[in-house]
Amino acid sequence: MATMQSRNLARMMLFPSVVLLLAWMIVPLCMTLYFSFLDYNLLTPGNEEFIGFLNYEFFLTDPAFFASFFNTLLLVGGVLLITICGGIGLAILLDQAIWGRNYVRIMVLAPFFVMPTVSALVWKNMLMNPVNGLFAHFAIWIGVEPVDFFAQIPLLSIIIIVSWQWLPFAALILLTSIQSLDREQLEAADLDGAGPFSKFIYIVMPHLSRAITAVILIETIFLLSIFAEILVTTSGGPGYASTNLTYLIYTQSLLQFDVGGGSAGGIVAVIIANIVAIFLMRLIGKNLED
């Protein structure tokens, strides 16, 4: 890509796909933006009219908005915490020379291939069900009251389910990173008198920082829009206890047929996602440089 000619050629070749991508993104975004200023309800079609920021006012002053905003942050933060910590642990375990390591690695990756709805259903009906669930049986077996997960700790239950889905992803990325760590550095640390703990803190963790950053950024993008797991398990309830922004927009626009209100919510969600993205890039983006 050194000469002017090759640079221009590269730009020309990129042009169609960039235009397509932009159109793909810009058109729906603009339409959403447009709808968000309309009084547009599917139950009363034909009398859309411009109502300024009224949709935004309704959305932002709705008590459900704040509840779901914090639920979104809790959900993202909780899942990130569990998957990063668990992922580091798993990656270190999987890096050990154990018998049948390759099979174990594939098994560990399995949850990632299961559809969100399916895994949420499995968790709901087979594991967390307060009567028939495995956890309930176990609780009765050790003699304690079974937990009604989706009634008592709905958000935490969803965090657990989503973490289970994303743990393999984090573990796999971190495992590749651990495997790329120069063994001679660890040996040098051995000779320098570093114990397992020092080696982890001073050699392994700094080496992993890049991979951890990548995992945080990628997971955040997907976790901000968690939907299927909530729909299948708690439907956002009880009350708004497990409603996140995505789910709130769904209830607003689809359940109440309010396209205008839902669009305003969508734009708010886009803005929040961007704020989170900028915040993350500022905070940890430098790890991805050089």
């Binding site: 550095q185 040996e187 040098a188 050699i203």
Partner: peptide
Amino acid sequence: GLAMVFQSYALYPHM
């Protein structure tokens, strides 16, 4: 009580 200098130097890259 021995010190080793590795072929790849094995310096700690982030320090």
